[in-house]
């Protein structure tokens, strides 16, 4: 059985469009402590193609991408400290 990941906070970015999708995720990550985990709910298509990449570029760790089978995904991210 896969190890359960403890999620510290969630944010829903299905109500906004690019580039505010990434901005809203970034603002939510900002509220967390380093090492904490955020679950980001996003739409299929453009958000799922771009948001994970942008978050990875910022140095955060992508833990998982879960398909909710309803046209949305949950991206599980661990916040990295600033270099």
């Amino acid at each position: 059985m896969a190890e359960e990941i403890k999620v510290d906070d969630t944010v829903d970015i299905t109500d906004v469009v690019c580039p505010v999708t990434f901005v809203k995720a970034k603002v939510a990550l900002e509220e967390l402590e380093d090492g904490q985990v955020l679950s980001i709910r996003m739409n299929d298509g453009e958000p799922v193609q771009n948001v994970p990449r942008s978050i990875k570029d910022e140095g955060h760790q992508i833990l998982k991408l879960l398909d909710n089978q309803d046209g949305t995904y949950n991206l599980i991210v661990r916040k990295a400290g600033e270099e």
């Binding site: 906004v16 505010v20 901005v23 809203k24 970034k26 603002v27 900002e30």
Partner: peptide, 24 residues
Amino acid sequence: MAFTNEQMERYSRHIILKEIGVKG
């Protein structure tokens, strides 16, 4: 201070920049 959705959109091009971001 938390951003409103409107502010996130208004300042999105700044916030996206690594050098500015949410803190900046």
